[in-house]
C-alpha cells in the first residue's frame, strides 16, 4: 500500500490506542524502538487491520521489524 497513507494510519492508530504522538515516522522506523508495550502494539495492529478490512497473522506481526515491513505484509495480503 501507499507508504504515506500507511504512516498516517499507523500514527492515527497509535494516537487512538495509546495516545502516542509520533513525529517523523518513516518506512525505516523500527517498531521495537517506538517503546510501545506488546499488548498496545497488538491493539494498534488490530486497529490498522480493521481500517483496511484485512486479517494479519499474529506470528507474522511478531516478526516485523520496521513500519516498511508492515507495509509489505499488508500489500501481500491485499494482493491475495
Amino acid at each position: 500500500m501507499d507508504m504515506d497513507a500507511l504512516l498516517s494510519l499507523f500514527a492515527e492508530a497509535a494516537d487512538e490506542i495509546g495516545q502516542y504522538s509520533f513525529d517523523g515516522l518513516s518506512k525505516d522506523t523500527a517498531i521495537a524502538e517506538l517503546g510501545i508495550d506488546s499488548v498496545e502494539l497488538l491493539e494498534i495492529f488490530g486497529y490498522v487491520e480493521e481500517e483496511l478490512d484485512i486479517e494479519l497473522d499474529d506470528e507474522d506481526l511478531a516478526g516485523l521489524k520496521t513500519i516498511g515491513d508492515l507495509g509489505k505484509l499488508i500489500s501481500s495480503q491485499l494482493d491475495d
Binding site: V39, L42, E43, F45, G46, E49, E50, D58
Partner: peptide
C-alpha cells in the same frame, strides 16, 4: 485472547 485485544468489537 489476541483476537479480542486486536479487535475488541
Amino acid at each position: 485472547p489476541t483476537m479480542f485485544i486486536k479487535r475488541p468489537s
